[in-house]
Design a protein around this nucleic acid. Structure first.
Length: 212
DNA sequence: GAGGAGATCGTCT
DNA sequence: GACGATCTCCTCT
């Protein structure tokens, strides 16, 4: 089912820092349907968040911050609304956004997007070929997974870790265009072994752009 | 479509 | 020195 028809960004609002100053479970739910945007000169990439997970800080055994503050995860302990980008399996980058007041390491992991704008650039970033009339399957391949969407948006740790996604001048932002998900599904987080049963993964029910 | 192997490196033990 | 908040490719069905 189509989730989006209006591709204009003129009526969108930049999400403010206060939005992220909350429990990651609330932030995750409320980020479903919002737009992740990357600006790069003339190029504009946008995707609608359809899958996201909450990580609860030092009390959450599955969180990167579980063992406390390190050089790697220090962004998580800083102010909310900042990008925490980590490198995993020697291959992939993944994008998180810090939540909660400074000192508390809660965050959300963006796991899948519905591509909205800039699909050809996303395909180039992914080193994939798109047909003249891209199929649903091709579009799904662009951003249906945390490693995939990071590559599609050219998100890396050296470039983006610590970036303020609420700043006007930021080239990486999250915007609200008024879209409302009709129904949200809750499930177990993907790919973790500790605290694996916690229902902290949130998806837009029925979206075809969810991972796996 | 499902399942398994390999890639490849930063981080912490 | 082990392993991870993943993905792709290959094989088999």
């Amino acid at each position: 089912m189509p989730l989006t028809t209006d591709h204009r960004l003129s009526t969108t609002r930049l999400i403010s820092r206060n939005f992220y100053l909350r429990d990651p479970r609330e932030v995750a739910r409320d980020l479903l349907g919002k737009l992740l945007v990357r600006r790069e000169g003339k190029s504009l990439l946008a995707g609608r968040i359809v899958e996201i997970e909450a990580y609860l800080g030092t009390d959450d055994p599955a969180a990167h911050s579980a063992a406390g503050r390190t050089a790697r995860n220090e962004v998580l302990f800083g102010p909310p609304g900042h990008a925490y980008v980590y490198f995993i399996y020697g291959v992939h980058y993944c994008l998180n956004v810090s939540c909660m007041p400074e000192g508390d390491a809660g965050c959300v992991l963006v796991r899948a997007l519905e591509p909205i704008t800039g699909t050809e650039q996303m395909a180039r970033n992914r080193k994939l070929k798109l047909g003249a009339h891209p199929t649903q399957r091709e579009l799904r391949h662009l951003t249906s997974g945390p490693g995939r969407l990071a590559q599609a948006f050219a998100i890396t740790r050296p470039r983006d870790n610590g970036k303020d996604v609420t700043a006007r001048k930021s080239d990486l932002q999250i915007l609200d265009d008024g879209f409302q998900a009709e129904r949200i599904s809750t499930s177990k987080r993907v790919g973790i072994t500790k605290a694996a049963e916690a229902p902290l993964r949130f998806t837009i029910a029925g979206s075809t752009f969810i991972s796996r």
